[in-house]
C-alpha cells in the first residue's frame, strides 16, 4: 500500500508560510507607519516636502494622519517651545500603543541654535525619542532614511511591547 506523505514545507501543496508571531506583527507595524502631522517650525516644510510628489512617502506605507488617535509615529519637526511642550506631551499620551517618536532637526534634538529662555533644549526632556535626525533643516532624504531606520528598529523589537526596554524609559 502506498504511503502518502505530504511535506508541507517543501512541496508547495498548500499555501503555508511559516513565521513567528513577532515577525508577522512587526511586518505589519513597520510597513504601515502613520505619522502624526506635527509640524512645529521650519522642519515641517521639509516634512511636507517628503510627503509630496517628489519624495512620496506613500510608497513606504507612510500616510500622514491629523489625529493622534490614528497615528503610530510622532515626527517632531521643529523647535519645541516651553509654551508648547505640554501639548506635545499630551499629544504623545493620546497616541495609542505601540508608538514611536522621531525627533527631526537640531531644534528638536537639542534646542539647536536657539539656546534661549523660550525653547525646550531637546524634546527628549518631554517624551522618549526613538530616532534623532540631525540637520537644520534635514533634507527629505534624511527623513526617509530615519523612517527606514525606524522600520529596522521595529523589526528587531518584540511584538509584545511589555518586553521592550522602552517601557522602562517612560517618563510617567
Amino acid at each position: 500500500m502506498a504511503q502518502h506523505q505530504v511535506n508541507y514545507a517543501s512541496s508547495a501543496g498548500l499555501p503555508i508560510a511559516l513565521t513567528s508571531v513577532d515577525k508577522l506583527v512587526n511586518w505589519g507595524r513597520s510597513n504601515s507607519l502613520w505619522p502624526l502631522t506635527y509640524g512645529l517650525a521650519c522642519c515641517a516644510i521639509e516634512m511636507m516636502a517628503s510627503g509630496a510628489s517628489r519624495y512620496d512617502f506613500d510608497r513606504m506605507g507612510t500616510i500622514f494622519r491629523a489625529s493622534p488617535r490614528q497615528a503610530d509615529v510622532m515626527i517632531l519637526a521643529g523647535t519645541l517651545s516651553k509654551k508648547h511642550s505640554e501639548f506635545a506631551r499630551r499629544l504623545y499620551d493620546q497616541m495609542t500603543e505601540p508608538k514611536w517618536v522621531i525627533s527631526m532637526g537640531s531644534c528638536a534634538n537639542t534646542g539647536g541654535m536657539f539656546n534661549t529662555y523660550a525653547t525646550v533644549q531637546g524634546v527628549d526632556r518631554i517624551i522618549p525619542v526613538d530616532i534623532y535626525l540631525p540637520g537644520c533643516a534635514p533634507r527629505p532624504e534624511t527623513l526617509q532614511y530615519a523612517l527606514m531606520m525606524l522600520q529596522k528598529k521595529i523589526r528587531r523589537e518584540s511584538a509584545n511591547m511589555n518586553n521592550n526596554t522602552k517601557q522602562n524609559l517612560r517618563l510617567v
Binding site: 523647535t79 508648547h84 536657539f114 523660550a118
Partner: peptide, 11 residues
C-alpha cells in the same frame, strides 16, 4: 500666539 516664540530678537 507665542507657541513658536524662540527669542530671536533677544538673540
Amino acid at each position: 500666539i507665542g507657541y513658536l516664540h524662540r527669542g530671536i530678537e533677544k538673540m
